[in-house]
Amino acid sequence: MSFTRVDLGHGIGLRSRHYPDFLGGGVRTAWVEAISENFMAMGGRPLAVLERARRDVPVALHGVSLSIGTVDPLDARYLRDLRALVDRIQPAIVSDHLCWGSHRGRYIHDLLPMPYTEEAVAHVARRVSQVQEALGRQLLLENVSSYLTYRADALTEWDFLSEIARRADCGILLDVNNIYVSARNHRFDPQAYLDGVPADRVGQFHLAGHRDRGAYLFDTHDGPVCADVWKLYEAAVRRFGPVSTLIEWDEGVPELEVLLRESRRAADREARALQRQHKHRRRAS
């Protein structure tokens, strides 16, 4: 039972505003992440863009509707369509969220948090194994931003995530912004989250912007990464080492150059964190 990390460097999301740039080729990014559902069972321009991007750089497929935690049976149509896309694109990474978003065949199109219970651990771990079997490869599960927790919770979120990853033998996509948002909303220490996740399971980072709505932080993906999240990212790099990192910007998507600049900033932050860590180690020895 093991997870093999592939470090792709620093990438950006493939969003429709930038399709002409990608079709033209030569976008200077190390890799791209595409929302799986935007390309499943589809063709035409969207798929042509994805295939063109794939010819140029590695691609990660990131799902939003697997609904791994629902008590519904796994959606066979979803798995079939995702498998077909995976076979066609041969992505470097396939991921989705540790959440639920459907019930009795209806979708809410949101990433609802799981109750952190032993029952849910067993349920999700079993389903992740089924998905990995259906896809013929390992899946990475991402922590979501959340605005509620349940009275039934018996574990911390990081213990919940780590235990599922261990039992299902899957990877972890650690969204640093989501940790920050949830930490503020539920008053836990984000560093404790980082410390609680097994380093050998973390295969990807997400970074994004959020909004302060007064009583809570809201995950919006509509702006640059804030200073506190950059600091937490540096802490994550020190804890986990260099990990494929993506800037998520889904609303009010800026010009490509702005997005690429944010991605370069992440690369600089990673280098700085690793340099500091190296210095600390040299001093200690």
Partner: peptide, 8 residues
Amino acid sequence: GSKHYSLG
């Protein structure tokens, strides 16, 4: 309601 995994 929405009965498909894709919002599209």
